[in-house]
């Protein structure tokens, strides 16, 4: 049982990174109507920027903020130069984001190399609570994620910006007539999702080594999380991330570890077939085609 508890706490920190990317996808997909396959690459770029800065002697938390800003800028550029033109044809935007992910991945390989990168954990303390070892860095990752989730959740459900955003998803034309700058909101959501990916990348490299190929692995988990929970639903992304974390912990402990990746894929396929709108329900994606 204690081993299981240990596994659970460990997978909670992994789930945090998954929740961050899943939340970015769920917001961008569900609210801005853009399927961004390059989100995983955004996370990887965020991790790489953090790595480069920490290697240059910058404090980890400063590097994290710089990575968030840099990836946010990347998102802004991508939205303005690419996705803006495919808003009416989401399928083309999706294919384009695949192209973008291929470009980003190979540009990172070109400028750095394929070798995995890691940093020494910025916080190395280990707390023992009731016989369970808790690595402080993992607890910090979980705490940061919890704060970001809370801010995002209340931002979308309570603030006037969140209300305006949901209004422009529900009815673009009416929202525009009410004076909501719909396109600017789309940009805003895209940039916010990118910033979350940058944060996810920075937190991820604090926990595990990452390679230029990390993005293409994590993106599937991100999609799984957002689709399991329901698109555009922040709470759903959290639930989805926790489900995946739990499945992973159980699989690592009781199942066949080499099949770990398969379980989350199977969970996602089954949920998509049984409940296409996700467990908690959400918008059906960009104009539900």
């Amino acid at each position: 049982m204690e081993i299981f508890l240990q596994q659970l706490i460990n997978s909670l920190s992994v789930a945090s990174v998954t929740i961050l990317i899943g939340m970015g996808i769920t917001l961008i997909f569900g609210l801005a109507g853009i399927v961004n396959f390059a989100q995983g690459e955004f996370l990887m770029v965020g991790g790489m920027i953090t790595w480069a800065l920490v290697m240059a002697g910058v404090n980890f938390f400063v590097a994290m903020v710089v990575a968030m800003l840099a990836v946010g800028l990347l998102g802004l550029t991508a939205e303005r130069t690419l996705f803006r033109f495919t808003l009416t044809r989401p399928m083309n935007g999706f294919i384009m984001s695949i192209g973008l992910s291929v470009i980003l991945q190979n540009v990172v390989i070109r400028t750095l190399n394929e070798v995995q990168k890691s940093i020494t954990p910025p916080v190395t303390a280990v707390w023992t609570v009731g016989g369970v070892d808790i690595i402080a860095m993992r607890a910090i990752v979980v705490a940061i994620t919890a704060v970001v989730v809370a801010v995002t959740y209340f931002g979308i459900s309570r603030s006037r910006y969140g209300v305006a955003l949901r209004a422009s998803v529900a009815d673009q034309d009416t929202a525009a007539l009410m004076g909501i700058p719909v396109k600017r909101y789309v940009t805003g959501v895209f940039v916010y999702g990118s910033v979350l990916a940058g944060l996810g990348g920075a937190l991820m490299i604090a926990l595990f080594p990452i390679t230029p190929f990390t993005g293409s692995v994590i993106i599937i988990r991100g999609f799984a999380v957002s689709l399991i929970g329901g698109l555009g639903n922040v709470g759903g992304a959290v639930v989805g991330g926790l489900i995946l974390g739990l499945v992973d912990a159980l699989a690592a402990q009781y199942g066949f570890p080499q099949w770990t990746d398969a379980y989350s894929l199977i969970v996602m396929i089954v949920i998509l077939i049984l409940r296409p709108q996700g467990l908690l329900g959400g918008t059906m994606g960009p104009r539900a085609t």
Partner: peptide, 13 residues
């Protein structure tokens, strides 16, 4: 691969 990616973006746009 970078060239493919760029080509894909250009073709779609």
């Amino acid at each position: 691969r970078i060239a493919y990616g760029v080509g894909l973006l250009l073709v779609i746009l």
